[in-house]
């Protein structure tokens, strides 16, 4: 067996696999976050587990970071390669006649999601790392819900989050179904895959928006 990583199809398969891996992560992230709406106790319990479990922190988290970096770096590399494959552009190019805007602009939606991740890391991940591995503060299993709610007291930030989730939905609408096609899934499953993609790609980002808006409203009502 000799897997040629320089093959365009193998790169395509690698992009699909990394995308699906990130979708699995997104799903578990959503499940934990949505619990914050229904139960402070469950959210704290899950967050405490995720934040202090050795396997999650030192095995799953580095794998996730590598997955995110690979997906973005490979995405930008492929975009550069694709653009250079047509040195002289068309005077008139009617892309809308044969494909969706979403499928033609994955780099745009991807770049917005990347920008969001920078904001998200600044908001949550960096303070969390500082709390645990720089300041070495004592672990409080009940701090997570309050911290989360506090982050969403700024309407501008909530709007920025919702815009990012809109672009995440666009990215997923093409990327999810496309990844299965890249993996060579037989066309008899396309209808089910496309249907599930639509439900997931709209449902999950909408759910994330709901969480942000819910906590913003909670903040306004309680203060």
């Amino acid at each position: 067996m000799a897997i040629k990583l320089d093959s365009s199809i193998i790169r395509k398969v690698a992009m699909a696999l990394s995308g699906l891996f990130l979708i699995i992560f997104l799903t578990q992230h959503f499940i934990i976050n949505i619990s914050s709406v229904f139960s402070e106790k469950i959210f704290n319990m899950l967050s405490h587990f995720m934040g202090n479990n050795f396997i999650v922190q030192f095995i799953a988290q580095p794998i996730l970071i590598v997955g995110v970096l690979f997906h973005f770096i490979m995405g930008f590399y492929l975009e550069w390669q694709n653009r250079s494959a047509r040195s002289v552009k068309y005077v008139v190019y009617k892309g809308s006649a044969n494909s969706t805007w979403i499928s033609r602009n994955m780099i745009v939606s991807g770049a917005v999601v990347l920008s969001f991740l920078v904001l998200h890391f600044y908001d949550f991940w960096i303070p969390e790392m500082k709390y645990k591995y720089y300041d070495f503060l004592a672990e409080d299993p009940n701090r997570y819900h309050e911290e989360l709610v506090h982050k969403f007291n700024d309407p501008i930030k909530v709007i920025l989050y919702c815009i990012s989730f809109f672009f995440l939905a666009l990215h997923l609408l093409h990327g999810f179904a496309s990844s299965f096609k890249s993996l060579g899934t037989d066309s008899r499953y396309y209808y089910s895959i496309d249907l599930f993609t639509k439900i997931y790609a709209i449902g999950i980002p909408l759910g994330f928006c709901f969480i942000a808006v819910f906590h913003l409203i909670t903040n306004i009502v309680t203060h």
Binding site: K12, N82, N98, M106
Partner: peptide, 8 residues
Amino acid sequence: GNCTNTGA
């Protein structure tokens, strides 16, 4: 270039 499944 690489295929991105646009279907065009």
